[in-house]
């Protein structure tokens, strides 16, 4: 009986009693612990695998910035992730640019797409927003199919060189690459953390909880929502572009609608509207995908079942549930 009156946004995961206590302190310590843990991670886990999870954790966190904190469910984040991935892969492969420039170009592309798509999709809310973003992402998918000169069609862009970071550090070395990915991941996460706790982020959450009220307080909510979407798209693009350099490929899989489902699932599992939920979800789903490799469609079935289970019985997600137990927003 707890969630029946949630007209805007999905506020289920919020640990409201904790609102009085400042959650930032705890979150900072968790960030410190996370950083130390990730510094140590390549010594006990495959660096490539950890980097994959970091890319998807950033992707899911970008999605959650929009879903969990603005209340907009985007079903088309693959468009930003995938296009940034193509742009980074293409520029790294065919242009004389260093990898960080390629990643920046990919991120910029996604940001710009976020601005254009946002201006269109923001005109509707709720389920319409979800359907529109899905349709726009499908537009991008068909664009990718029909421009084989750019995307290399079914084959995708393969053999993308990792190159030299700033023209100096050889990213062919997994550890160097790992350091770069870790820096990007931490940078992206801290940016999201910063945004959420900024006055701008507070307004976004006010819009999520009660948009008519935010409007009556004089906020031009459409602009805030659009800016939230642009940020989310840009960070999703950062994740996609980084992934393209790490795995040295960009393919149609990255822009397919099923890719848009990934961050949704990760966010749902980890806890929507929590800072650390999406990355926990990304780790859980990443490990699961790893173990279920070769089981083909059973993976899809399992993911579908997890969706159903989370919606029916586990709406707060892992981190949201922990947050409720310890009465803190994390």
């Amino acid at each position: 009986m707890t969630d029946t009156s949630a007209p805007i946004g999905l506020t289920a995961a919020r640990a409201t009693p904790a609102a009085e206590r400042d959650p930032k302190q705890l979150q900072r310590w968790i960030f410190v612990g996370l950083f130390l843990f990730l510094c140590a991670a390549p010594w006990f886990a495959y660096p490539i695998f950890v980097m994959k999870i970091l890319c998807f954790a950033l992707f899911a966190s970008a999605f959650n910035l929009l879903f969990g904190y603005v209340g907009l469910l985007s079903f088309g984040h693959a468009a930003y992730f995938g296009m940034a991935s193509y742009v980074a892969a293409y520029t790294a492969k065919f242009w004389p640019v260093t990898p960080e420039i390629a990643i920046l170009l990919g991120t910029a592309t996604a940001t710009l797409m976020g601005l254009v798509f946002g201006a269109i999709a923001i005109r509707r809310q709720g389920i319409y927003f979800a359907m529109i973003t899905l349709a726009l992402a499908q537009l991008v998918y068909f664009f990718a199919i029909q421009t084989p000169k750019f995307t290399h069609g079914e084959d995708g862009l393969q053999g993308v060189p990792r190159g030299y970071l700033f023209g100096i550090f050889d990213l062919a070395n997994d550890m160097t690459l790992y350091a770069m990915v870790l820096a990007i991941f931490m940078g992206g996460m801290l940016l999201i953390h910063r945004v959420i706790h900024s006055p701008f982020g507070q307004i976004l959450q006010a819009i999520r909880d009660n948009e008519p009220r935010a409007i009556s307080l004089g906020y031009r909510t459409q602009r805030y929502k659009l800016l939230g979407l642009v940020l989310s798209a840009g960070i999703a693009g950062l994740a996609g572009a980084t992934k393209a350099i790490v795995f040295q490929v960009a393919t149609l899989v990255d822009v397919h609608w099923s890719m848009s489902g990934e961050p949704i699932l990760m966010t749902l599992v980890g806890g929507m509207g929590t800072i650390f939920g999406p990355m926990v979800g990304a780790a859980v789903i990443g490990v699961m995908q790893n173990y279920m490799q070769g089981l083909g469609s059973w993976l899809t079935v399992t993911q579908g079942l997890i969706f159903i289970f989370c919606v029916l019985a586990f709406r707060a997600g892992i981190v949201g549930t922990i947050g409720r137990l310890i009465r803190r927003d994390i």
């Binding site: 969630d3 029946t4 949630a6 007209p7 946004g9 999905l10 289920a12 469910l73 079903f75 709720g126 389920i127 979800a130 489902g261 949704i264 749902l268 083909g296 469609s297 059973w298 993976l299 899809t300 079935v301 993911q303 579908g304 079942l305 997890i306 969706f307 159903i308 989370c310 919606v311 029916l312 709406r315």
Partner: peptide, 28 residues
């Protein structure tokens, strides 16, 4: 029926999961 009264977006997520299950099973 179990999610009636919740935010409508949950219905979208639930039926998306259902679609994955059905499609995955048939493909399998």
């Amino acid at each position: 029926a179990r999610i009636s009264g919740l935010n409508v977006l949950y219905g979208l997520l639930l039926t998306f999961g259902l679609a994955l299950v059905v499609q995955g099973l048939v493909r399998n």
